[in-house]
């Protein structure tokens, strides 16, 4: 099936199995490997991307579903001013450990700061509650997002 969509602000078209996972399309067809597979079943958030501006687990999204839509990955967000600001904050707190979960956290945090942006710990925890991190204990992640809310 022909699928046309916007990927990190560029129009693209692919011919693919309509049930193929968005995660595989991003990684295999476009070599954007920032989007990770941690579980393949919606449980970890390492594969988070924005679909029409909303964070989704790309391991559970099928190709047919992205036709005519906009997809943003961590690579795309890193180019946006707000993405850059978030990266600065995560960097400053030394929050990043193994980093496998972080492109996902970047995407979800970006969505939070952009759409809500209140410097409120409870809200931030809730917004990030679909992203698992096994290394950090999360506190430095919260700190970074709070910092980004303040600076934005």
């Amino acid at each position: 099936m022909k699928i046309s969509f916007k990927l990190n602000n560029k129009n693209v078209t692919i011919d693919t199995d309509p049930m193929r996972r968005l995660l595989d399309i991003i990684r295999e067809d476009f070599h954007l490997t920032g989007t990770k597979e941690g579980c393949g079943e919606g449980e970890c958030g390492a594969c988070t991307v924005l679909l029409d501006g909303k964070p989704v687990t790309s391991c559970l999204v099928n190709a047919v579903h992205i036709d005519g839509k906009e997809v943003m990955t961590s690579e795309g967000i890193a180019q946006e001013p707000l993405g850059k600001l978030l990266i600065d904050c995560f960097d400053e707190t030394n929050a990043v450990q193994c980093g496998f979960c972080f492109p996902g956290f970047l995407v979800t945090s970006y969505h939070y700061v952009k759409t809500d942006g209140e410097k409120n710990l409870d809200k931030i925890k809730k917004a990030l509650s679909g992203n698992i991190c096994r290394c950090t204990g999360y506190q430095k992640i919260f700190e970074s997002v709070m910092m980004a809310c303040e600076r934005n």
Partner: peptide, 12 residues
């Protein structure tokens, strides 16, 4: 419904 799955799942 806030406790449904996770914010990432709620959008799908």
């Amino acid at each position: 419904l806030e406790s449904f799955a996770s914010p990432l799942l709620q959008t799908s």
